[in-house]
Simulated scan of single mutants.
Amino acid sequence: MLTYEPGDSPAHGLDPRAKLAVQFGLAIAVFADPTARGFAVGGAVALAALAAGRLSPLRVVRTYWAVFLFLAVGPLLGGVALGEPWFRVGPAVESLRSVARVVPVVFVGAVYVRTTPVRETRAAIQRVVPGKVGRLFGVGVGLVFRLFPVVLADLRATRRAVHARAGGRRPLRDRVRRILTRGLQRSFLRADRLALALRARCFAWNPTLPALAFRRRDYPVAALGVALAAWPLVVYLPGRFIPVA
């Protein structure tokens, strides 16, 4: 599981709001333009983000292998037919175009997670979304970033324990049931301990968060995010650009 790792890469030094702008802008751009042009733009942004964060794409694939496996199965299932010719290329290609749009977003999101501390993410969200709604979103994102890796580690530990006790000889359904049951028990236990810890530390809705300030290098990145978000205007503007087929 990718988590924040301190470093001196260019992406580490960027304001989280600028990185969020690129991430959301890229998602809008690739879903608005599912053509070769849109895929080229998304791929270029993803490669630039990986280089800026000094993150290997192989590491992202190994970490999110389940996501990529799910995306890879989609086109195969999309082309399956219940009669002759049993597999249709057209629907499979259309499904491939749909799932391919997710890949650059996953890569850019992985770079963001690795290069942005959780406190800065919460600070960015609470500054972008005002009021109690922003505080609620900030708290939720912070808790997810902190607890999700722990929950995955618990599941892996439970799986190793089951296999250490000759669980590999048991039926697959029994193994899955044991791992999920124990995983849920440990997750609820961690949630109870988290609630107790928050009360013991006088949890505040408005804590002192890191100060965020745009610097000169943040403006081009934020401008890129705005340009990507405006990409649908370029795609669908009639009379001047070619619309999506």
Score class of each variant (00 low, 15 high):
Leu2His: 10
Thr3Arg: 14
Tyr4Pro: 09
Glu5His: 12
Pro6Glu: 11
Gly7Pro: 06
Asp8Gly: 13
Ser9Asn: 01
Ser9Asp: 07
Pro10Asn: 10
Pro10Tyr: 11
Ala11Lys: 00
Ala11His: 07
Ala18Gly: 02
Ala18Thr: 00
Lys19Ile: 01
Ala21Val: 02
Gln23Asp: 09
Gly25Ala: 01
Val30Gln: 02
Ala32Met: 04
Gly38Met: 00
Phe39Ala: 10
Phe39Glu: 04
Gly42Val: 04
Val45Phe: 10
Val45Pro: 03
Arg54Met: 08
Pro57Cys: 14
Leu58Thr: 12
Arg59Gly: 12
Arg59Met: 10
Val60Arg: 02
Val60Gly: 00
Thr63Ala: 15
Thr63Trp: 13
Leu71Gln: 00
Ala72Leu: 15
Pro75Ala: 08
Pro75Gly: 06
Glu84Tyr: 15
Trp86Glu: 13
Ala92Cys: 01
Ala92Ile: 11
Ser95Asp: 10
Leu96Gly: 13
Leu96His: 05
Ser98Asp: 07
Ala100Pro: 06
Arg101Trp: 06
Val103Ala: 15
Pro104Ala: 06
Phe107Trp: 07
Phe107Leu: 14
Val108Gln: 03
Val108Pro: 07
Arg114Val: 10
Pro117His: 00
Arg119Asp: 15
Arg119Trp: 05
Glu120Ala: 11
Arg122Ile: 08
Ala123Pro: 06
Ile125Lys: 03
Gln126Trp: 05
Gln126Lys: 01
Gln126Asn: 01
Val129Glu: 07
Gly131Leu: 11
Val133Cys: 04
Arg135Glu: 14
Arg135Ala: 15
Arg135Ile: 00
Phe137Asp: 07
Phe137Met: 12
Phe137Thr: 00
Val139Ile: 15
Gly140Trp: 12
Gly140Met: 13
Leu143Ile: 13
Val144Lys: 02
Val144Tyr: 14
Val144Glu: 04
Phe145Lys: 08
Phe145Asn: 07
Arg146Ala: 15
Phe148Glu: 11
Asp154Glu: 14
Arg159His: 12
Arg159Thr: 14
Arg160Val: 11
Ala161Asn: 04
Ala164Asp: 06
Arg165Pro: 07
Arg165Gly: 03
Gly167Glu: 00
Gly167Arg: 00
Arg170Asn: 05
Arg173Ser: 14
Arg175Leu: 06
Val176Ala: 14
Leu180His: 11
Gly183His: 03
Leu184Glu: 09
Leu184Gly: 01
Gln185His: 14
Gln185Met: 09
Gln185Glu: 14
Ser187Thr: 15
Asp192Ser: 12
Ala195Arg: 11
Ala195Leu: 13
Leu198His: 01
Arg199Gly: 11
Arg201Ile: 06
Ala204Phe: 09
Trp205His: 02
Asn206Ile: 13
Thr208Leu: 10
Leu209Lys: 04
Leu209Arg: 02
Leu209Asp: 12
Ala211Tyr: 09
Ala211Met: 02
Arg215Glu: 13
Arg217Thr: 13
Asp218Phe: 02
Tyr219Pro: 06
Ala223Phe: 03
Val226Asn: 01
Val226Ala: 09
Ala227Ser: 11
Leu228Arg: 02
Pro232Ala: 05
Leu233Cys: 08
Leu233Gly: 10
Val234Glu: 01
Gly239Trp: 07
Gly239His: 12
Arg240Ser: 09
Ile242Gln: 12
